[in-house]
């Protein structure tokens, strides 16, 4: 690829308490790809993006975004956490949650105003949630909650998007809506990195893939490396997936 490198991970090693979870990960993600991170449970997929984003502190290694350290480039990055990581009974509305996406660019103390509200409404529109903007978040379905999270990241207007299992526990129509948005992001030249569970849909949804199981097994275009050999290396057993052409 002649493309620029959007995210570069060097020798990243992370340990949780007593247990090492990621070992010496080197990863280069070119600009403009829609990439899936796949691997078995406990392979460190979420840990990888959390440590790229500075939520977890790695023991060793470094992360750079467009050749600059992550801390300097934070505003280029947006994050969609796992849906289950927050308390959905929190007293707030869908619009309010999406507005949170603007807090980063606002910085300390400054309050969101009309401009931010307009951006949030546009993002809600994009994910098809505008009619629900004043709905209390606990009264949304799982798929709708996921769309709200996606909208919050869209508001950040970033260049690189990290998403942790955005398809988990959502209905079919939400899944289609989300993948369409992701593809639109890629078309606009954004880089999207998704922790993904469902191997069947990898060839259909993504053009780039990273196999991860504590170590990086392989990374590259789906059409080149998404094969039984790498799947077996990652999942440990004879793993066969029929790849639809």
């Amino acid at each position: 690829m002649e493309n620029k490198i959007a995210v570069k991970v060097d020798d990243l090693t992370v340990a949780y308490n007593y247990k090492p979870v990621l070992w010496d990960i080197d990863l280069e993600i070119p600009e403009g790809v829609l990439m899936a991170i796949v691997g078995p449970n406990g392979a460190g997929k979420s840990t990888l993006i959390k440590s790229i984003l500075g939520i977890l502190k790695p023991i060793a290694g470094s992360v750079s975004i467009y050749d600059e350290p992550y801390e300097k480039q934070r505003q280029l990055v947006a994050y969609v956490p796992q849906k289950g990581s927050v308390d959905w009974d929190f007293p707030t509305t869908a619009l309010d949650v999406v507005m949170m996406g603007t807090y980063g660019s606002l910085g300390w103390i400054k309050r969101p105003g009309q401009k931010e509200k307009k951006e949030a409404l546009e993002a809600l529109e994009k994910v098809g949630m505008l009619p629900f903007k004043n709905r209390q978040i606990s009264q949304l379905s799982g798929g709708q909650q996921q769309r709200i999270f996606l909208a919050r990241a869209l508001v950040q207007n970033a260049s690189i998007y990290f998403m942790d299992e955005p398809f988990q526990g959502v209905d079919a129509s939400t899944e289609i809506a989300i993948i369409n948005i992701l593809k639109a992001l890629r078309k606009a030249g954004k880089t999207v990195i998704v922790v993904h569970h469902d191997l069947q849909t990898v060839p259909e949804y993504f053009d780039w893939v990273t196999f991860l199981n504590v170590k990086k097994i392989a990374t590259g275009p789906v059409k080149d490396i998404f094969n039984d050999d790498n799947l077996t290396k990652t999942y440990g057993i004879n793993y066969k997936v029929s790849i639809q052409e």
């Binding site: 090693t13 070992w23 010496d24 023991i59």
Partner: peptide, 9 residues
Amino acid sequence: VSLLTFLLH
């Protein structure tokens, strides 16, 4: 962990 990371590297 550092040692092992180093060796792995």
